[in-house]
Design a protein around this nucleic acid. Structure first.
Length: 478
RNA sequence: GGCCCCAUCGUCUAGCGGUUAGGACAUCGGCCUCUCACGCCGGUAACACGAGUUCGAAUCUCGUUGGGGUCACCA
């Protein structure tokens, strides 16, 4: 048995939305799980809203997420082209078939006329719902006027389809109308191009957001009119805002790019998205490979969810914290742009030594870069408050003593350093806290940092003593 | 309003006739501690409501309520 052919079909009218990314992910997982094909198709039949920049942005985001596609833009494939704007011949042929078989007809009513009729109806009764009255349904003449092509919807009975997530969905045909298939300019509308392409591209499973469930009956009618098999359908519960309405940029960061810029790793994004509407017992954290192995439509829930930035941030954190999830190599590669953004050209060896120290302290790569930049600077950036509070003249004798105590340590390793430090603190009748903070500020420039001794170890003897010297100068009022 | 769909802690969810209704995030205590974190221990917190079916319902059925989606010559 050949694997499933699934697709992600964005319309290029902006960035890749986090909800769209989830749709792409579920499709991708299904394809990878069963050795099928993941196809990208660009739905750019609305020329006014589509842009090549958006195509680029969406593809970039998918690439960043690691949702690689087997057919589509850039990679091509047996069903080229993968841009609907370039597939008009296919739609034209399909529509002629439909007209020929009596399933569709040309409608010469102008948009203005219908808009006026709709407005008039709404004026009389705001709750009334306007339906195309069927004016041109049975007309046989072909006036020399612009026309749209409409589908001749049945008026009785119901249209049913079976959904992998929602089960059987039944819609009365009386609630449908003769929907438009082709604009006067010859461009197809969504339902037509979608059905024609899904069929021609051999799509076996159509998975998309639940907001599409409403036009699925229309698409099913089309499949039947064409005499084609209806593919498997899977609708995903909606991702709503924290308030419970449609998730948009008013509520939160909703583009994949924004999370990338915040320093979320791709696998963390995938993890959060996967767990949104899908679950696997009590497990919260998944590697990408695990998701591929475990994903199943049976475990996709039906109820909509609310996007939760806290949970998302926690998943991001979990991925950065665990080496199992983010290897040192990946961490180093991913954090590099953030360090470079802060004017640091990270030394790879130093970086890999410093990484374990920030892992439990950074929820994002941006935080991580900020938390360990002091390792890489010639001298740490000295926080003003920290300086005022801890690099005082009173601290000078302590720092001087520490320079000797630490500098004389035979071995530059955590354990002996800490032992010497503590012995000295005790012999002086001091408390750890009294000297730890000045030393921390001396070494890191700030009051919060990883443990002193691990910092010293990563810094090495020379830099540690050098920074101590520098701090003594500052504290002495230099 | 028509049509479609949904309904377990604040949030994501487990549960698929018999559980002290579990986990995670968030939140609140505590422990650890050189700071900040991590970690660990513990607390608060949910089956929307009403009828059925059943010896027994969070689980099945119906209704009510609530929420969402969609009603274009957008996708």
């Amino acid at each position: 048995m050949v694997g499933p052919r699934v697709r992600f079909a964005p319309s290029p009218s902006g960035y890749l939305h986090i909800g769209g990314a989830r749709t792409a992910l579920f499709n991708w997982l299904w394809a990878r799980r069963h050795g099928g094909k993941f196809i990208i198709r660009i739905e750019d039949t609305d020329q006014d809203r589509s842009s090549i920049e958006s195509v680029r942005a969406i593809l970039d985001a998918l690439e960043w997420l690691g949702l690689d596609w087997d057919e589509g833009p850039e990679v091509g494939g047996p069903h080229e082209p993968y841009f609907q704007s370039e597939r008009r011949d296919a739609y034209a042929r399909a529509v002629e078939t439909l007209i020929g078989s009596g399933h569709a007809y040309r409608c010469y009513c102008s948009k203005e006329e219908l808009d006026a009729a709709r407005a008039a109806l709404k004026a009389k009764d705001a709750k009334a719902q306007f339906r195309y009255p069927g004016t041109c349904r049975d007309r046989t003449d072909r006036p020399d006027k612009p026309f749209v092509v409409r589908f001749k919807s049945p008026t009785e009975g119901a249209t049913d389809f079976s959904d992998l997530v929602f089960g059987t969905v039944s819609t009365p045909n009386a609630s449908q109308q003769d929907f438009v298939l082709v604009r006067p300019n010859g461009y197809p509308l969504y339902n037509l191009s979608c059905v024609v392409d899904d069929h021609e591209m051999g799509i076996t499973t159509v998975a998309r957001g639940r907001d599409h469930i409403g036009n699925t009956p229309q698409q099913v009618m089309l499949y039947r009119a064409f005499g084609w098999d209806v593919p498997e359908l899977a609708h995903l519960p909606m991702m709503l805002s924290a308030k419970g309405d449609k998730l948009s940029k008013r509520h939160a960061a909703v583009s994949v790019r924004e999370y990338r810029e915040r320093g979320y790793t791709p696998n963390a994004v995938l993890n959060y998205l996967a767990r949104f509407g899908w679950s696997y017992g009590d497990q919260e954290i998944f590697e990408k490979a695990e998701l591929v192995e475990l994903f199943d439509w049976k475990r996709v829930g039906k109820s909509d969810g609310k996007f939760d930035e806290n949970k998302f941030a926690d998943v991001a954190f979990e991925h950065l914290k665990e080496e199992r999830l983010t290897s040192a190599e990946h961490y180093a590669a991913w954090i590099a742009p953030f360090l470079e953004g802060a004017g640091i050209r990270p030394d790879r060896e130093l970086l890999e030594k410093a990484l374990p120290l920030v892992r439990p302290r950074a929820r994002t790569l941006a935080e991580a870069a900020n938390a360990l930049d002091f390792f890489f600077r010639e001298t740490p950036e000295l926080d003003d408050k920290a300086k005022k509070k801890f690099l005082t003249p009173e601290a000078v004798p302590y720092l001087q003593a520490l320079r000797t105590v630490l500098g004389d340590s035979p071995a530059w390793e955590e354990e002996p350093l800490e032992r010497r430090f503590r012995e000295w603190v005790e012999s002086e009748g001091l408390k750890m806290k009294q000297v730890a903070q000045p030393l921390r500020v001396a070494l890191t420039g700030r009051t919060a940092s990883p443990g002193l001794f691990e910092v010293m170890l990563v810094l090495g003897r020379d830099k540690t003593l050098e920074r101590l010297e520098g701090a003594i100068r500052v504290a002495s009022g230099g």
